[in-house]
């Protein structure tokens, strides 16, 4: 197989990888806020259940979770899983990353000084004004480095979709490598992941710099 053809075949996989990446972020960043709110709920039952759920998600391999989300409906409920591959995959990624983000958000919010809340309260800000105008922008800045870490991990974790035989770049690389007895597809995949992460790091650094105007 010529290099050009190889690259072209892998190109469709790259697009799918990018698809998993963005869908996971779009789903997990906001879902993380929801989970964080449940995790910090005043209701002890809600709080404990959420805490246990996060522990399970963080305590088991993402690969295993993907298999459970995909095959679970069949084994547990005897449902047909035709057409379920991609939704199952995305749900697995979103839920996993949302739990990590939830814990990052929680850490950021808990690191805010009580004085910020008190100053806002005395000035008469409502609870939601305090959260959205005063607390959240500061938390965002504080947690950005941790978010960057997760996003970079996500770029590489997308390769786990190969577990469900989803044709993203890593699955295709493995296929071509086997059929052509060539090492080249892995090199191409490696370069692709590296460039993707370089772009992520570059973008996040820009955002961090833009927020450097205050401490």
């Amino acid at each position: 197989m010529e290099f050009g053809t190889m690259l072209e075949t892998m190109g469709s996989g790259m697009l799918k990888t990018i698809g998993i990446f963005f869908l996971t972020l779009i789903g997990s960043l906001p879902l993380g806020v929801g989970i964080m709110l449940l995790r910090t709920s005043k209701n002890k039952v809600v709080k404990s259940i959420t805490k246990a759920f996060i522990a399970v998600i963080r305590g088991t391999p993402l690969m295993l979770q993907l298999l459970v989300w995909y095959f679970g409906p069949y084994y547990l409920f005897d449902w047909s899983i035709r057409g379920w591959r991609f939704p199952g995959l995305i749900i697995g990624f979103v839920v996993n990353y949302a739990c990590y983000f939830a814990e990052i958000y929680r850490g950021g919010i808990e690191s805010m000084s009580v004085g910020q809340y008190e100053a806002a309260e005395v000035l008469g800000y409502t609870k939601s004004q305090t959260f959205f105008r005063i607390i959240l922008p500061q938390v965002f800045k504080r947690i950005l480095p941790s978010i960057t870490n997760e996003v970079i991990t996500l770029v590489k974790d997308t390769s786990l979709a190969y577990t469900l035989a989803y044709a993203e770049v890593f699955s295709i690389a493995k296929q071509i490598s086997a059929s052509q007895t060539s090492f080249m597809p892995f090199l191409i995949a490696g370069v692709f992941y590296f460039i993707a992460n370089y772009a992520v790091a570059f973008g996040m650094e820009r955002i961090e710099k833009a927020l450097k105007y205050y401490n």
Partner: peptide, 26 residues
């Protein structure tokens, strides 16, 4: 109004915005 020992200014707002935000938003 209350002035705190630790100032508790909003670090992400400019000096001017620290002063004007509450009269406008509250």
């Amino acid at each position: 109004g209350l002035v705190f020992q630790q100032f508790n200014l909003f670090p992400h707002f400019s000096v001017l915005k620290n002063i004007t935000d509450a009269p406008v938003k509250v």
